[in-house]
Design a protein around this nucleic acid. Sequence first.
DNA 1: TTTCGTGCAAATTGTTTGCACGTTC
DNA 2: GAACGTGCAAACAATTTGCACGAAA
Lengths: 141, 141
Amino acid sequence: MVGDPERIIRYLRGRGLRSTDARRKIVEVALDTGHHFTAEDLLDLIRQRGHRVSRASVYRTLSLLCEGGFVESREFQRGQMMYEVMVGQHHHDHLICTRCDRIVEFQNEAIERLQDQIADQHGFKLESHSLRLFGICPGCR
Amino acid sequence: MVGDPERIIRYLRGRGLRSTDARRKIVEVALDTGHHFTAEDLLDLIRQRGHRVSRASVYRTLSLLCEGGFVESREFQRGQMMYEVMVGQHHHDHLICTRCDRIVEFQNEAIERLQDQIADQHGFKLESHSLRLFGICPGCR
DNA sequence: TTTCGTGCAAATTGTTTGCACGTTC
DNA sequence: GAACGTGCAAACAATTTGCACGAAA
């Protein structure tokens, strides 16, 4: 299945990285988290399952997962990174409620195309982008 | 003229805030900086002009200027805020070169409209947005 | 057995805060 | 003279790093 932790471990092995206990636990729990989470959230979840892993390893493994494109990080609130598993997910952007911090995902092909055009017009080779819409969600209005 | 520091000081006065030496220097130098700058950059510029102002006051005043909409802050590189004077400027978004950190501004009406639509569709009252395109600039390719 | 990854604690870094004092109103 | 703003240094908080030890290859 799509969220198979072993697939990621295999990828890491392919890059000459080792398959360690900590990495396997971190990947496994990360894939299980439904949605957006912080490094600290992930650490808590891992510990709730009775695994002992250090905060440093969580950060180090999250970096690897980001490099591999399995996870994406973005900053919804200043000073804290949120992570999201992208395995089996299409790219999307976010609406963030400034009252309750609720996050809603959306996809918009037209915006994506316009972004490509803009990069082209300025001679940039586009690598990534970040689009965040901040506002007040229906529930908070 | 458009970048008149006194206009901003008057606005602050109107909000019950005082017109102090530090605030005047900070506003004056900020308005003179052509473009994107960090809090530290601004502090350096102020000191180069022979004024003695504390780092704390720079941060505090930049906050006020952001609240008033005279300045906008955004994070181009993780962990550090960049500020930009918006007095006399239209809203725009940014292309950021991941090699040399060059920043190019662009405006795109179509994207703005699409953002409004998306917020509407999800019942959000849009307050602000942040769109950053990361890539490699012509000079670095 | 060599290399790599881990856990720990300490360091880092931009920003914020508490407080005593000086300024503005 | 009351309230507010300042400067300073200490506090913060998320993340990174140095290092000695244990595990993977």
